[in-house]
Amino acid sequence: MAEQARLIDIYIMGRRCQVPEGLTILTALEYSGYRMVRGCGCRAGFCGACATIFNFLHDPQLRYDLACQKTVEPDMCLVQIPYFPARKATYDLEKTKADAEKIKTLYPDIVKCFGCNTCTKTCPQELEVMWFMTDALRGDIKAVAEKSFDCVMCGLCAARCPQGLVPYNVALLCRRLYGRYLSPNSAHLDQRIAEIESGKFDAEIEELKKADKKTLRQKYTGRDIEPAHDQAWE
């Protein structure tokens, strides 16, 4: 495919390689003969396995991104981070209270944040990492959950934090607390679970299970379809 494309120079861990323009960092590595073991997961920007650091031959400023999503550029010097030893607190969610104190007990270091904003500048998902860390410090769990929601847990924020904080794990704790304790309860879900346990639907399902293909097909084609669009949109 890319054989006709213009070739550009990139530097993989210092070694010069020529690759067609338009490849992602991940496919450029493969084009250069590397078979990935670490540093490659979903290949689609969802799993955070492919955290990458790079700069340019004539610009030492470090940059960060996901190798599977970032397109290579001329004179890029790059290396992948196969693993980063970040701390994760262990806890029993059922016995954990959703409050500021708990977050500080599990991650006492968060008070050490001095607001350098490196985490935010590092995040390949462009999340406001420093702001949600401030929210975590204040105990605003909902705000952390919302602001950190799109985190793919690539770990770059932790790798770069000069104070050794682990924003992505702090955020995960907050989201779990939010989901478990603070999000509004879904009464219709509880009710349905109770109905199923009481056997309310058993007879109807039993009948469907026994039905021959022809009857099923008739029921299927004749079923009502709820319109996808006129839903109560907030």
Binding site: L93, S186, A228
Partner: peptide, 30 residues
């Protein structure tokens, strides 16, 4: 189909954040 609602509940108890309206009703799509 019978285990489905309790699976959703199980995940929520583990801390999964489902899309919901403020009254707790799940925001569901076709």
């Amino acid at each position: 189909v019978k285990d489905a609602p309790s699976a959703v509940k199980w995940l929520e108890k583990l801390g999964v954040n489902w899309d919901k309206a403020p009254d707790g009703s799940m925001h569901e799509l076709s």
